[in-house]
Amino acid sequence: MRIFLEQMINGLTIGSFYALIALGYSMVYGVMKLINFAHGDLFALGSYLGFSLLVWGSAYVTSHVGLAGGMIAAMLIAAIGIGMAGIIVERIAYRPIYPAGRLPAVVSALGVSIFLQNAIMVAWGPRYQAYPVNVVPTVRFEIGGIHITLLQIIILILSFILLALLYYIIQKTTFGAAIRASALDRDTAALMGININTVIFFIFALGPALGGTAGVMVGMYYRQISFTMGWNYGLKAFTATILGGIGNIPGAMVGGLLLGIFEMLGSAYISTAYKDVFVFLILILVLIFRPRGLLGEKVAEKV
């Protein structure tokens, strides 16, 4: 039981990474019907951005705003920087080729992904980089025999706040309704006075911003980052998106958290070596038995 609960906590922690990244895939797919393959690499770029800020800026930041301030600054700057990167990617790599159809855009997304991955390698080197150890003090709490670290608590709370905020924006505000409407029917959305370019700007800023923040969290959690991390996390988060129902915002959140839990339980009770196999088995099963995902609407019901 103890192992089970601890693995649940671990699962929720990495699940919240997946959820934060998955939102970017889901929002972009919802409105653009485009799988933004560059999204995982934007996440990785965020992780590296946070790394540089914490390493090079640590002396300055720590003396001025303390450790917690340094962490928050790193996440904030990564969020803003990656949000801007997302907009630039859309402008340069996607917008010019929308008229050519969906497939060219997907190919372009793959191109951006490869470009970003190599850019990171050139800028930061091909070797693993290690996040500084002391960003969050290594404090471990024991509650009823279950261990949880301070870092985990911070990650869980922060992720929860971000997920709740995004849920609120998308599901409860009129602008959020405008985003969902644009995803359903762009022409009719325009008749309402919704400027699709505003919507596109927003989703390409916000999705990557959340991904960049997750990048910093992953760096702090695992300490080690590599320029290929975008593929691995991107694929898992994409799986989470499919699991929850692509295009569906609550679905991406639920899918991410569930996937994290599956992965951790799988590695505890079945085999660590097979945990990725386990994840992709889920992807395959979902695609076969419930292709619209857990919360996804039935697609193509209307003519």
């Binding site: 009129t174 309704a177 405008a178 969902r180 409407a181 359903l184 029917d185 309402m192 006075g193 209307k302």
Partner: peptide
């Protein structure tokens, strides 16, 4: 100019009220 298109074109997964709110999007 407001346009109620052919075939209803309601935003099917949005509530009635959300649809109406979007009708007033320009003055939200």
């Amino acid at each position: 100019i407001s346009h109620a298109p052919e075939g209803r074109k309601v935003f099917s997964t949005l509530t009635v009220e959300e649809n109406l709110n979007l009708g007033a999007y320009i003055r939200r």
